[in-house]
Amino acid sequence: MSALVSVKNLTRTFDVSRPWLNRLLEGRPKAFLHAVSDVSFEIEEQSVYALVGESGSGKSTIGKMVVRLLAPSEGVIEIEGTDLFREPDQERVEKIRTDIQMVFQDPYASLNPRWRVRDIINEPVTARGGDGTGLAERLLEQVGLSAGDASKYPHEFSGGQRQRICVARALASEPKLIVCDEPTSALDVSVQAQVLNLMSDLKEEFGLTYLFISHDLTVVEHMADRIGVLYLGRLVEEAPRDSIFNDPKHPYTQMLFAAAPKLDAFGREVEPPKGEIPDPINPPSGCAYHPRCPFAIARCTLERPEMRQVGGSRVACHVAK
């Protein structure tokens, strides 16, 4: 298997400065928020790669850059060996873009309420001049709805059904890669199971590759083949699913797993994690996790740890072994 997506040293900064007059009067410098810093990973064809992290860790920003909704500040995203932002051959760029689709978190906000379901699902094909006759009906049946639903409007469906419509729309252009940004966070547990099962089935059937973005570790453990853990815009650990869940190396990953609620932890009395995610505009020096880390040593406050191989995992930590 080869890498479908290859992300190298990806960085994205946002200008969060005050307006220029305020800066001038108050004598403040420009301020930048590093949403994603120096992130590298590869996604194998027909696998599920999950990005996990808490809010502000940059997982959605990476997803948006992969589907080209945002441009990277630095670094390269190669899809099928082509960097969509630098490739001069526009025809090839257009062709590869049809191979990438996205499913968003909120199925209430991501469907146009004034469009019929048929038009919503056909849009990725008709926008490129294709013929969408009968396509929506076929896809609706594929995602567990009925062909007759094609002439309805989004408000006639429940949250889970809407997310199925979003999945059907993502499938319309016969993509290879689907970026799923928290696809089940807005759904109830019993409906979440239905949508996750559907996504697994479709992956087998169409040979899809998923970039799966989630904060829910139980969902990630179920879906992912490989997992990247993000903290404050940096990848702190990256490993195959089983090694990361059985033997998390990075102290942040360990904390994240320990803090997640468990179904068999009745009346569990554990020391809750300390501190909160720091301000991303002025992140701590050295390793960004050091103020909360129980294993921090002097070196952690001074020097940022580089990604290194520890066992089967890639870990950015001075202490992990």
């Binding site: 808490e54 994240l256 609620p261 809750p272 994690p273």
Partner: peptide, 10 residues
Amino acid sequence: DVSVQAQIIS
């Protein structure tokens, strides 16, 4: 977030 949730529950 998960880590803050653990703090609040506790």
